[in-house]
C-alpha cells in the first residue's frame, strides 16, 4: 500500500468513526422505556420481560437462551460427529487436538478427583463445562428475543437466571448423589445428604458470579456515553473470564464431592478392638 493510499484510508476511517460517534451522541438513544432501577431489577428477577415458548407458556428469556445454547451445541456436535470424528488420525490435527484436549481435560478432572467410577462423572463434567462456558459466552452474541409485550431484548446467559442456576446446581447435586449410591449404597446417600447445603451453594455461586457480570454490563450499556470502547473490556473480558472461571469452579466442585461420596469407606473394626481389649 502506497503512502498516499494509506493516508486516505486512515482519514476515511477516522472520519467514519467520528461521524458515527458524533451522530450517536447528538441523536442519543431511544428514550429508555424503563429506568435503571427497573432494568437492574429485571436483570436479577426476570419478572418483567417474558418470552413465549412456542406459544405454550411464557418463560424467562434465560430459558430461551438455554435451549438456544443447547441447539447450538448439539448442531456443532452433529457436525463434528459426521465430518470430523471419522477423519480422526493417530497424529492429530489442530481441531482434533482441541477436541481431545477438551475431552481429556474433563476426563482427567474426573479421574483425578474421583478414582472410583469416574466414567459417568467425566461425561457429566464435560457436558456441564461445555454448557456453562458456551452459555456464558452466548451473551456476547447479543441475540435478540421478542418479549410478550413486543419489546426486543438481548438474550442473557442461561445461568444468569436463578432458575437456570438452581437447575444446574440441583442436577450436579443429583449426579453427586448418584455417585454416592453407586459407590457406597445407603452410606453414600447419607454422606451426600450431609452436604445438604451443596445444591444451594452451587446454584447461588453460579447465579451470583454470572449476575454480577451481567449487572456491570447492564450498567455500562445503560448509558450511551459508556458504549464506546469500554464494552469491549467490560463485556468481552468479563464474560470470557466468567466463562472459564465458572466452568472450572463448578466442574471441579462436582468432581471433588463426587469423589468424596463415591470413595469406599473402610469397615470399622470397633467390635474387634473391644474384644481384643477385653482379652488383654
Amino acid at each position: 500500500m502506497s503512502k498516499k493510499r494509506r493516508t486516505i484510508f486512515i482519514l476515511v476511517w477516522v472520519l467514519c468513526a467520528a461521524a458515527f460517534l458524533v451522530s450517536s451522541l447528538v441523536i442519543g438513544g431511544a428514550s429508555p422505556e424503563e429506568s435503571i432501577k427497573e432494568t437492574m431489577r429485571d436483570a436479577v428477577l426476570h419478572d418483567t420481560n417474558k418470552i413465549s415458548l412456542f406459544g405454550i407458556m411464557d418463560v424467562n428469556p434465560a430459558v430461551i437462551s438455554a435451549y438456544t445454547v443447547t441447539f447450538i451445541l448439539l448442531i456443532f456436535a452433529v457436525f463434528v460427529r459426521i465430518f470430523a470424528v471419522p477423519k480422526f488420525k493417530t497424529i492429530p490435527g489442530k481441531f482434533q487436538i482441541l477436541l481431545e484436549e477438551a475431552v481429556g481435560f474433563f476426563d482427567n478432572l474426573a479421574k483425578g478427583n474421583s478414582p472410583h467410577k469416574n466414567y459417568f462423572l467425566g461425561a457429566y463434567v464435560f457436558v456441564a463445562g461445555a454448557y456453562i462456558c458456551i452459555g456464558t459466552l452466548f451473551e456476547l452474541l447479543g441475540l435478540q428475543g421478542i418479549t410478550t409485550s413486543g419489546r426486543s431484548i438481548t438474550l442473557p446467559a442461561p445461568l444468569s437466571d436463578i432458575n437456570g442456576a438452581i437447575a444446574m446446581g440441583v442436577t450436579s447435586y443429583l449426579i453427586i448423589l448418584s455417585g454416592g449410591i453407586l459407590g457406597n449404597g445407603f452410606k453414600g446417600v447419607l454422606s451426600t445428604l450431609k452436604e445438604f447445603s451443596l445444591p444451594i451453594s452451587m446454584s447461588f455461586r453460579l447465579f451470583g458470579a454470572l449476575l454480577s457480570g451481567l449487572l456491570v454490563t447492564e450498567l455500562v450499556y445503560y448509558y450511551v456515553g459508556l458504549s464506546f470502547a469500554l464494552p469491549v473490556v467490560v463485556g468481552v473480558m468479563f464474560t470470557a473470564l466468567h466463562a472459564l472461571i465458572q466452568t472450572y469452579v463448578l466442574t471441579m466442585l462436582t468432581a471433588v464431592f463426587y469423589g468424596e461420596v463415591s470413595e469406599k469407606t473402610p469397615k470399622k473394626e470397633k467390635i474387634k478392638t473391644k474384644k481384643r481389649r477385653k482379652q488383654i
Binding site: V44, L45, H46, D47, L53, M57, V59, N60, A62, V63, A66, Y67, T70, L73, L74, A77, V78, V80, R81, V85, F88, L99, E100, V103, G122, A123, Y124, F126, V127, A130, Y131, P158, D161, I162, N163, G164, I166, A167, M168, V170, T171
Partner: peptide
C-alpha cells in the same frame, strides 16, 4: 427471587437433552 419450579424443570429437561446429545455425539466417540 422469582424462583419458578416449572422453569427449573424446563432447564433440567434442557440439561438432560444436552447431556444425552453431547455424550453420544461428542464425548463418547472422541
Amino acid at each position: 427471587l422469582n424462583i419458578n419450579f416449572q422453569q427449573i424443570l424446563l432447564h433440567m429437561f434442557n440439561l438432560c437433552l444436552l447431556f444425552g446429545g453431547l455424550y453420544l455425539l461428542l464425548y463418547k466417540p472422541v
